[in-house]
Simulated assay, not measured.
Amino acid sequence: MTLLILGGTNEARLIAEALEGQDAILSLAGATRAPKTQALPTRVGGFGGAEGFSAYLDRHDITAVLDATHPFADRITRRTAAICADRSLPYLQVLRPPWQAEAGDNWTEIAREEDAAALIAPDAVVFLGTGRQSLERFANLAGHDVICRQIDPPTSPFPFPGGRFLVGRPPFSVQEEYDLFQALGVDWLVVKNAGGGPSRTKLTAARQLGIPVLMIARPARGDWPIVETVHAALAWVESL
């Protein structure tokens, strides 16, 4: 059996560590320029669409696919699930639970990035914890004071007026996020409902500071096999 793990999340890293030495390959999309060293043989970069992915499966005799990509990597997940179904190839998605609001949180759920501008005053300081990949969808925030945090230094200018990049590599503690938001004078925090413990610290800091949060809803769940934990994913691998 040769297992292909589609990674990029903390879950993928933990799964790779648990499967070290076994016949498995970890694939990273390459969103981060200098990813951390992984416990399994690792490839980095896209596959070249559906045809390229299918060719990779054949070339490396992949017998099962474990999808531990980001909860918002919906296009990749749907494509992968469909190709595996067509090939009768075992497929499983690891999808951690979404965040749920707690007492004191002030969250407003929105369906897409473009919906944020209608809720934010023109003079507000907006902190985007959404990464650079969907940044252009916030173009109607042009003229606001927008801060977008990303892991790598930018290679191009901010895509609309009023914005600036902030470089930082997670994880961040609650205190670090609290101090940062306070220093920047953040009025709104915008995030995707990615779930997970390590990145929830920004939400805790926002609650402590009374900062309202725009929470971008997740894509709809698919009808393919899904588990929520690393333990369940490893049990599935063991059952193959």
Rank of each mutant, 00 (worst) to 15 (best):
Thr229Tyr: 00
Thr2Lys: 09
Asp145Ala: 11
Pro153His: 12
Leu203Val: 10
Ile226Ser: 02
Ile211Gln: 06
Thr204Gln: 11
Gly30Trp: 01
Leu6Phe: 02
Leu3Ala: 10
Arg59Gln: 13
His60Cys: 05
Asp67Ile: 01
Leu92Val: 05
Ala111Thr: 15
Ile25Thr: 06
Glu238Met: 04
Cys148Trp: 06
Ile62Leu: 06
Ala82Gly: 05
Asp86Cys: 01
Ala50Val: 10
Gly131Met: 03
Ala34Leu: 13
Ala73Phe: 03
Phe158Ala: 08
Phe181Tyr: 09
Asn140Cys: 14
Arg33Phe: 04
Ala206Leu: 01
Pro98Leu: 01
Ser239Ile: 07
Pro159Met: 10
Phe158Val: 07
Pro219Arg: 08
Ile216Glu: 00
Glu51His: 03
Asp187Glu: 11
Glu177Met: 07
Ile120Pro: 04
Ile147Arg: 11
Glu136Ile: 15
Glu51Phe: 01
Pro90Lys: 11
Ala116Cys: 02
Trp224His: 14
Leu119Val: 03
Asp105Thr: 06
Pro90Ile: 00
Glu176Cys: 00
Ala121Glu: 14
Ile15His: 07
Arg78Val: 01
Asp123Ser: 12
Phe72Tyr: 14
Val125Met: 11
Asp61Tyr: 02
His70Met: 01
Gln93Leu: 09
Glu176Gln: 15
Thr2Leu: 11
Leu234Ala: 05
Ser199Lys: 03
Arg137Ile: 02
Gln100Asn: 14
Thr80Val: 14
Asn193Tyr: 05
Thr77Ile: 06
Tyr56Ile: 06
Ala235Leu: 04
Gly21Arg: 03
Asp23Trp: 00
Ala50Cys: 08
Gly8Ser: 07
Thr32Gln: 10
Trp99Lys: 03
